[in-house]
Design a protein around this nucleic acid. Structure first.
Length: 255
DNA sequence: AAGTGCTTCAACCGCCATACT
DNA sequence: CAGTATGGCGGTTGAAGCACT
């Protein structure tokens, strides 16, 4: 598949390589990655990644603002680990940035949660008397830290194929257009529309494990797909924001 | 000041979907 | 229609920098 040129270099990008790549992109345009590698001295994928994640003028660098973090959390709740989609809604941020931020964020939270759980377990250890009030509060904390599993992190190959077939059916319900038109719709387009996201939820729900209602209503118990408890500060009203206020959701006329 | 552990993030890898021949 | 090339994505890794002892 990948054409392996002998001159392709691995590792960190040097200043010279960066300028070379920038020149290539100026010359050939963004997207013509097949024209770049030999000239930039790196493989096609590296060139693309370097441009998209670092050299592109649209990139916003630096720490995430509270607003961005808030939006990121909400989007992750909704979309799961679909970093490119999330990044698409965070202007100037790349999928890699978002992913990196989330991973470190998650690590910290996980650690904190683990510590908290251990502390709780230590406290409980000396034969806890039956106390209904404590039972409830304990239950609540556990629920808030233990997400419902399993959840798809992203579309597995199986789910993708399911989506490709099922989404068309669901589209048929959603839209009274001719089936032929739906069948010719590019899969990429299907995958990246809000409808597709809902479709995914519907598809996952077919086995009873992950329904659209879960997505919409599970609130703080739903971490949105990474399978790791992330959001102990979750505010259920965030869903209201996403589904009522967001332009693309408005466009769906969802109730 | 030196050593060690931790965190961050750029880069790579493998896989999949689509386009092209 | 099959095979190949290309673009794109998410997961993972490892080097560099930082904080702490």
């Amino acid at each position: 598949m990948e054409r392996s040129s002998g001159t392709v270099r691995k590792g960190a990008w040097s200043r010279e390589e960066d300028t070379l790549l920038q020149r290539c992109i100026l010359k050939f345009g963004e997207g013509n990655w097949h024209l770049v590698p030999e000239r930039a001295g790196k493989c096609r994928k590296s060139c693309r990644l370097r441009w998209l994640n670092y050299l592109s003028p649209n990139i916003k660098r630096g720490i995430f603002s509270p607003d961005e973090i808030d939006l990121l959390i909400r989007l992750h709740n909704l979309l799961g680990n679909r970093w490119s989609l999330i990044a698409g809604r965070l202007p100037g941020r790349t999928a890699n940035d978002v992913k990196n931020y989330w991973n470190t964020h998650q690590k910290k939270k996980k650690k904190q949660q683990q510590q908290q759980q251990e502390e709780e377990e230590e406290e409980e250890e000396p034969a806890p008397p039956v106390d209904h009030h404590n039972q409830i509060s304990d239950c609540e904390t556990k629920i808030s830290f233990k997400p419902i599993k399993p959840k798809p992190r992203a579309l597995s190959s199986v789910n993708r194929s399911l989506l490709r077939t099922s989404s068309l059916n669901i589209n048929a319900d959603e839209d009274d257009d001719a089936a032929g038109e739906q069948n010719t719709a590019p899969v990429k387009e299907i995958r990246e529309t809000p409808l597709a996201l809902l479709t995914q939820a519907a598809v996952f729900g077919e086995d009873g494990s992950y329904g659209l209602d879960d997505l919409l209503l599970s609130g703080k118990h739903d971490d949105g797909g990474s399978g790791e408890g992330d959001d102990d500060h979750f505010d259920p009203s965030h869903h209201d924001f996403l589904f009522d206020e967001h332009p693309w959701m408005k466009s769906l006329h969802l109730e």
